[in-house]
């Protein structure tokens, strides 16, 4: 996704990357921002869906 954003014109210094997708999603959900948008590349689509499902099963809130 970082590559996709870069080629869409988003400055590289505005992008941070995290290889631990589960932790990244949890951190985002626990973040202070009012709204968070989750976009997935095709490669990450199913793993991300699994992670979100697992988080939902955990009780709806990120832990």
């Amino acid at each position: 996704m970082a590559v996709r954003l870069k080629y869409a014109g988003v400055p590289a210094d505005k992008v941070t990357t995290d290889e631990n997708v589960t932790q990244a999603i949890k951190d985002t959900l626990n973040g202070s921002a009012g709204a968070a948008y989750l976009f997935s590349t095709y490669t990450a689509l199913w793993p991300v869906q699994k992670i979100i499902k697992a988080i939902t099963v955990e009780g709806g809130a990120a832990r």
């Binding site: 970082a2 590559v3 870069k6 490669t43």
Partner: peptide, 12 residues
């Protein structure tokens, strides 16, 4: 600066 591209390739 191709650091994102190289990293994406390496992860794959």
């Amino acid at each position: 600066d191709d650091s994102f591209e190289k990293r994406a390739c390496e992860i794959m």
